[in-house]
Simulated scan of single mutants.
Amino acid sequence: MEYLLIMFLVIVTIFLGKVGTWFGFSEVVGQLFSGIILGSSIFNIVQSSNLIHLIAEIGIFLLMLNSGLESDLKEMKRYIKASSLIAVMGVLLPLITFPIAFLLLGYNIQTSIFAGVVFSATSISITLAVLSEQKKLATAIGAIILSAAVIDDIIALFAVTLFSVLVGGGALGINSILPLLAFALGILLRKYNFSDKIGVISTKMGNSFFYPVFFGSIGLEIVIQGLGDKITAIIIFSILAIVTKFVGSLWGAKISGLDTRVSSAVGAGMISRGEMALVIIQIGISSHIIDDYTSAEFIVAVIVSTIVAPIIMKPLFKKI
């Protein structure tokens, strides 16, 4: 019976992902809603289980492996100065601002610091989609943004790995290091001729089964019943998620010598959190750094940033 429910989750997740794209949203947004709808928040048809968690972990591995395979180190080196400044500033501002905001709102220090880590990440896939749509993928600005996003995510992955290890009392769990290892493996494999085949196979496996289970499983963890009294906090988190990344990345771009228009486009291109933030949230849940209620607040803010990012990006990209 569990296998049938998992397949049902996959089908609904893929379908809602497509529905999301029909309305101009990221596919990830629609996929997250499948878990919310099918889980305990609404219909309670599918419950989280050890098998779902295992499949989700494989999904994380494939997702990060593909991110590594798509990371062109040579291209990153060309714009390493600008990309590094953008990435560092784009990480630092959320990393500083979110813990302060969370502490002021009454969260404990562990959750507050973890919030900074979650919202320091950037979604490469969302940025890729908009850059491709605007025919900016093969341009210098495209290379700078993607390089910055990759560096940004490497920093975030290191941060969450270190944080989960420290919180776990020094125990280096597979949940903590799996994304980092998969990402590194993808980068290492990229230089070999067979890497394209690996990318094609892993992408097909991910898109057809493992990714839907991963994103759906995150939705299953969300408990919306307890979010009513947290609406003010969620609005604040969502605004901070957008503003800190935009401003931090814009500052980094300006410091690196880019003009205001290009810097603004770069800032917009770094806003979306998407799948990387969700991977980090999942690590937080698995490592017992955050509970289901807190993860739900994070996920809502991630969804908002994922929806808003392309809306801001498109007009700014048209100007450059």
Rank of each mutant, 00 (worst) to 15 (best):
I100Y: 14
P179Y: 11
G68H: 03
G257D: 06
D196V: 13
Q31G: 15
F33R: 01
S112Q: 09
A148G: 08
Y107I: 06
I303Q: 02
I37M: 09
M205G: 12
G219D: 05
V300M: 03
G59K: 03
D291E: 06
F298R: 01
L65F: 11
A101C: 14
I289D: 01
V167K: 02
V200E: 15
P94T: 10
T294K: 01
A159L: 10
V150R: 00
I11Y: 14
L166T: 10
V29P: 09
Q110I: 14
I201A: 08
V304C: 05
G228M: 08
T97L: 15
L9F: 13
M313W: 11
V279H: 01
S48N: 14
V160K: 01
K245Y: 02
F33L: 14
M205R: 05
Q225P: 01
L128Y: 11
K319P: 06
R78C: 09
S41D: 09
L128G: 08
F8G: 11
F114V: 04
G226A: 07
L180M: 15
S295F: 06
L104V: 14
Y79A: 08
V130R: 00
I218F: 05
D196I: 13
K197E: 13
N175W: 14
S34I: 04
G20R: 01
S41G: 05
L146F: 06
M270P: 04
Y107L: 09
L104R: 07
V247T: 04
T139G: 03
L105G: 06
I60V: 15
G168R: 07
Q110R: 13
S84Q: 11
F33Q: 00
I242K: 00
S41H: 11
I224W: 05
A138S: 07
D229E: 14
S263T: 07
V165C: 13
I222K: 00
F119G: 01
S41T: 06
I36L: 11
A87H: 14
E75H: 08
K204H: 13
F119D: 00
Q47G: 12
N50R: 09
Y211T: 08
L54R: 05
T161A: 12
W22N: 08
I6L: 15
L62S: 03
Y192M: 10
I86C: 12
I11D: 07
L178V: 13
S217I: 03
I109R: 09
K254P: 06
V279S: 02
